[in-house]
Each structure stands twice: as C-alpha cells, then as structure tokens.
Computed example of a mutant assay.
Amino acid sequence: MSNYSNDNTARRYKAHVSILGTTQLHLRNPYIIAWWSAAFPGFGHLILSKYLRGYALFIWKVVVNLYSHVNLSMVYSFQGNIDMAKEILNTRWLLMYIPVYLFGIWDSYRTTVDMNRVYLLAEREEHSFNSFALGSLEINYLDKRNPVFSVIWSLFIPGLGQLYIHRILTALFVIIWLVIFYYNLHALKAVSLLFLGKIKEATSVLKTEWLLFIPSHYGFAMYDSYINTVK
C-alpha cells in the first residue's frame, strides 16, 4: 500500500483517508444493515458512511417519533395498557412515520447490495489509495487498532469508539445526540437520586419517551466501532 492520494486515475477506490476520517468499502451483509435501519432509521446508512442520508433519517425519526408519541405508546404497551397506548398515538404524525421508516430499511438494503458490487470491482482494480492525511486541524493515518477497546470505549460513552478509530463525523453526531437524549431523559438526575437510595424518585423522574432511544444508540455505537476497527 502506498501513500499516493486519490487522484481520480482509477474508477474505484477501496478506501479514502482524510482528516475527518477513514472511509472504506468492504463486504457487508445487507440484512444486518437493514436490521439497523429497522432498529433506528439512519443507523444503517451511517454504517455505510452515507452520512447526509443517515443524518436526515435519524433526525426525522426523533422528531416524528416524539410528535407521534410512538415511544410513549410502546411503554404503555409493555405495561399492558393497550387502550392508553392507542389513545396516546397522534395519527397525523404516525402516517408520516411509517412510509419513511420503510424507505430507510429498503434503501439501506439496496445501497448495501450496490456497494458490495462496487467493492468487488474495486478489489479487482487494486488501485493504491492514500494511507496518510495531514491538515491544519488533524492528522489521520492507517494503523492497527484493537476492536475490543472500540467496544469498551463505546460502552462508556457512545462515540468514543468512533473517535478511537478516527471516524470523526460519526463520533460527533453520536456524542451530540447522546447529550440531547440524556438531557431530556433526566438521566443524570436519576443517577444522582439512585446513589442517594431514592429508587422510586429516580424512576419517576425519567422521561420514558426519551429512554427508548438509548439502547439503540449504545448498540449502534458499539457495533459500528467494532466492525470498522476489524475491517
């Protein structure tokens, strides 16, 4: 592998190293990518480094979910209160939620299949790509990193695993939205009450409609950092 920059002398490259991150093509299972889009629209596209589309679907998911009260309805369903789950739903927003949700799953699957084909063609060309980027704000280079560390840091704070492997755009997006989720969830206030032994107060202070965003956020951060470290 040489340190030549991508100068458009080849039709396809397997990777590109810039100060904002390392973008790479590799074979992915389209069903797994589609599953991440089902878990949270936008995540499947972020794994594929389709950032603009991923950001748009993610923000759309959060806004429409909150206004349609989907998460709150799910909480009531988990509690067995089906009537309240139906009553709380805002159908004006829900009708916008479903088609875009399905589009995210379909488009991430389709894009994965296309990108797998592009990777196979790029692998045949075997064209050199840059492995070092130096700029006024940052330095990025290819080196060997431990995927276990990526998972551990993502488990502490989602986004740190991406910073470890220099995926700056994904890291910033994940960390900023984690702060938004934690703030509206009142998570730190609940943790403080929990340390004081006030379990009921800690539970009651949580905003459950924001709580259901957290598991997918953590899961995505760990999976994305792990799989990209391995590749």
Rank of each mutant, 00 (worst) to 15 (best):
H16C: 10
Y141V: 07
Y164V: 01
F213A: 07
I33G: 04
N65V: 07
S77E: 09
M1W: 03
E125H: 00
A39C: 15
K189E: 15
F129Q: 05
D143T: 14
F173S: 02
L169Q: 07
Y164H: 05
V151M: 07
R124F: 01
L142Y: 02
S128M: 04
D143A: 10
L52N: 13
K198A: 11
V17P: 01
V151W: 05
P30N: 08
S136C: 00
H127G: 00
L137V: 05
L102M: 12
R12V: 11
S136Y: 02
W153R: 10
V70M: 06
D107Y: 11
E209V: 04
K231C: 12
W153H: 03
S37T: 09
P215H: 09
I214D: 06
H69R: 15
F181N: 00
W60Q: 02
S18C: 02
K200M: 10
I199S: 03
V148A: 14
P147W: 01
I175Y: 00
R110A: 14
F195G: 11
M222I: 05
R11D: 15
I33L: 14
D107W: 05
S225T: 08
L212H: 12
W210K: 05
S73T: 04
V174N: 00
G44S: 10
E209F: 08
N3G: 11
P158K: 09
S150M: 04
H69Y: 13
Y183C: 03
G219D: 04
E201F: 04
A133Q: 02
S136F: 06
P99C: 09
G104L: 00
F173K: 01
A171E: 04
